[in-house]
């Protein structure tokens, strides 16, 4: 038992591309540095709530990086399963905050127990044609029909719009991140996971750096009604820094440094717009955070809001220009 486990693990370790280990070393180094800074700021109970929140975020980051790396080692199936679970939890947060009625029960059952497994099975199967249209075409038509069959016409349009919006956002959009694994890029075979890591690192680092630059230099609020923490200085400083990191990571991608930088800039922009739009949705639903799942971060959607917008755009640009 233990021998087969050892050979299983060594098999995984030998199977991973060399770039993965450099990247992993870099990520762990970065987190170790962040933990050290957090411990220094919070020494002897100093720093108050902001530093406590910062340290909770850093701890959660450790968990997220460890889980992701474990999935990457085990393979595409584990990675796709983790993203399916992510979509499931994000959709759960979305519909919990959305007012739904008894008449939505059948529609919601379809969303959770049919749409989520189907969409991720299509990712695993690599069936691009159906992956791209299952939810926006068939889901779009089927769900209101099922809703109408249940016979509740009160606020029919509002209810169906909200559920469809949540489904598109949390399942369709997020599924484009693991869908990067199905792209066949000449000369880059078998390394789709690195492309996914590139997207996640740039989009998440951009969030963190915008937050840090905003806290340090933020003067001018970008959209005070939508988000009290987004500043022009944060966007420009954090966005440029994340773009720089993306360009510097060209060696894990099929791109040249210039292409990697341009795509990173695109990811930063989309991620920013996603965070902004979802903040507005959140406010209109009367909530500050989507949930309480991840300590210090709020809910799953608070962490994935920028991925929702960045993943589909990145996926299609790469698919159009590089395959």
């Amino acid at each position: 038992m233990s021998e087969s486990l050892v050979s299983f693990v060594t098999g995984l370790v030998e199977g991973a591309p060399a770039q993965f280990w450099w990247l992993l070393g870099g990520l762990f180094g970065l987190l170790a540095l962040a933990s050290a800074i957090g411990a220094f700021l919070g020494r002897g109970g100093r720093g108050g709530a902001t530093v406590a929140n910062l340290n909770a975020r850093i701890r959660a980051w450790w968990w997220m990086v460890v889980v992701l790396c474990a999935c990457f080692l085990v393979g595409p199936l584990a990675t796709i399963a983790v993203f399916a679970l992510t979509s499931f939890l994000a959709l759960r947060e979305f519909v919990t905050l959305t007012p739904t009625r008894r008449g939505d029960h059948a529609v919601l059952l379809l969303c959770f127990w049919v749409a989520v497994p189907l969409q991720y099975w299509l990712v695993y199967d690599g069936w691009y044609g159906l992956f791209a249209i299952a939810i926006p075409v068939y889901g779009f038509l089927l769900l209101p029909a099922v809703s109408a069959l249940s016979g509740d016409t009160g606020q029919f349009l509002e209810r169906n719009t909200k559920i469809q919006w949540g489904l598109m956002l949390t399942v369709y959009c997020i599924s484009h991140a693991p869908a990067l694994l199905m792209l066949q890029i000449p000369g880059f075979e078998g390394r789709g996971l690195l492309l996914l890591l590139f997207l996640l690192i740039v989009v998440q680092l951009s969030d963190v750096l915008q937050y840090v630059f905003g806290k340090l230099f933020g003067r001018h609020l970008l959209a005070p009604k939508v988000s009290p923490s987004k500043t022009v200085e944060g966007l420009v400083g954090g966005g440029l820094a994340a773009t720089g990191v993306g360009a510097a990571l060209w060696w894990i991608t099929p791109f040249t440094p210039l292409q990697a930088g341009a795509l990173a800039a695109l990811i930063v922009l989309c991620g920013f717009l996603g965070g902004l739009a979802l903040s507005a949705v959140k406010r209109s639903l009367g909530a500050k955070d989507w949930g309480v799942m991840i300590e210090g971060h709020g809910g799953m959607l608070d962490r994935m809001d920028s991925v929702c917008f960045a993943a589909p755009v990145f996926f299609h640009i790469v698919r159009y220009f590089f395959t």
Partner: peptide, 18 residues
Amino acid sequence: DNARRSLPKGSLLPVPFI
């Protein structure tokens, strides 16, 4: 909160609300 939305009276399958 929400258990009633997840599995209301008369339905067989639950919707996972928080």
